[in-house]
Amino acid sequence: MHNTLKLTVSHAPFWHNGSSISSKSRNILLASLLAVIPGCLQYGPAAVGVVTLAIASAVIWELLINFISRRPISVGDGNAALIGMMFAMMLPATTPWWAVVTGTFFAVVIGKEIFGGIGANPFNPAVLAMTIVMLSWGDLFDFNAALLNYSFDFNAVYPLVLSKSFGALPAESFVLTDLLLGKQIGGIGATFGIGLIAGGVYLMLRGYIRWEISISFLAGIFASALFFNILNPELYAGPGFHLLTGYTLIGAFFLATEDSSSPVNFIPMLIYGLLGGALTVMIRNIGTHIDGVLYAILIINLVNPIVDKIRPKALGKGV
């Protein structure tokens, strides 16, 4: 008889589109390699060391937390590795090992796990960690000083420092195509513009990041930089410069788009992105900090729950 047959019984729906967190993480990691590999070629073994250490330590921190809190092992979803990678991309290749390891601790443990793990973090964990380490050990992340021992065939001055201290004129010494090709100093995975853009476009097309956020973030940068530039062309660099320097591109494609800390509705995503872009340029141009991307992202992360309330009425509700 058929009584012994054990059928699978479960609730509808019986189909799934096959997406998963791990495939998302895998694809974002893959896309980030487009920027990280050129970075590693530029900065050599030290950069490779920082990247691998960041990823490994992020995974280990998450494992440790899994054990301590007696929760199922969650590193398989690739999210911890991704956080490690994002963090490493922002670091200079010279970052000492202890700063990398504490950084990933801040990212994984403080940035994500204490809020309840994946999906519950109000801030982008990597951005939060980066901000903390920058505030704590600022000297390490002064790119000019940090990368002093490298010799480059291009102007080895952190572009944003130049524009901050000397206005728009020196900024013009950077040719935009050079910036795109990574001929500037900066974070390991944050300078190779073409790679970041290619990775970003890939992720947008495949739907792993929400294109509305990236595009509006860049639009926000462009518009506000243009505004400042028109206001005072001597003092403020043009939009092209702002788009291709500092953490702009990595911010637009990899950081602001982090799932948990960004909105999911259309108009909120646009507001979120535009605000992020505008804040970035404002901080760069009139604030005290050199780059504004990290603070801008933390601020938009903070307002995310509020803006995401703007949405169409549910079926059968309201007028």
Partner: peptide, 25 residues
């Protein structure tokens, strides 16, 4: 042919919001 369900938390990817015909968050 059966996809296992999981007990992972929601990662806030928003896919569900985009497809929901009733505009539910």
């Amino acid at each position: 042919q059966i996809t296992e369900r999981s007990d992972t938390a929601c990662i806030n990817c928003g896919e569900c919001v985009r497809v929901c015909p009733a505009n539910i968050q």
